[in-house]
């Protein structure tokens, strides 16, 4: 199983989609993963049962260009990532505007904000 992952920049996503389509690759999955700083979105393509992965690193609020123009079926992954993680994809072939997966709370897989400490530690100097 090929686990080599190529890092690319966010604006390059549509070009990679077009390149993979012209190379005869099929889109297997788009995966969003929280990491220590933000998230990574991985695009996995297959040709002759060999996987090729491309990955972008994104922060909250970043708008990701869609690969819908190259792969019409990408809308299921892009809408899903939008509904579960809160990322916006620009130029999707079918944009559900947040209603593809109906969840009781918005963006349930989004990283939870750092909770406030329950005890405030006041150092000695500050006390005096």
């Amino acid at each position: 199983m090929n686990m080599e992952i190529n890092m690319i920049n966010v604006p390059d996503v549509p070009n990679i989609g077009a390149k993979m389509k012209s190379g005869g690759y099929r889109l297997v999955v788009i995966t969003c993963t929280p990491v220590s700083e933000g998230y990574v979105v991985t695009y996995s393509f297959d040709k002759d049962y060999k996987l090729q992965h491309y990955r972008i690193s994104v922060q909250d609020g970043v708008k990701i260009p869609s690969i819908g123009p190259s792969y019409g079926g990408a809308f299921v992954y892009e809408n899903e990532i939008h509904d579960l993680y809160g990322f916006t994809f620009e130029g999707m072939t079918l944009d559900f505007k947040g209603t593809f997966i109906k969840t009781s709370i918005p963006y349930p897989f989004k990283k939870k904000e750092q909770t406030a400490p329950t005890v405030t530690v006041v150092n000695k100097e500050a006390k005096e």
Binding site: V28, V29, T31, C32, P34, G73, V76, E80, L94
Partner: peptide, 16 residues
Amino acid sequence: QFRVRTPTLTNVPALV
């Protein structure tokens, strides 16, 4: 992290 891509999800665009 655990993420599952099932065949039905990827067959939805074909269904449409």
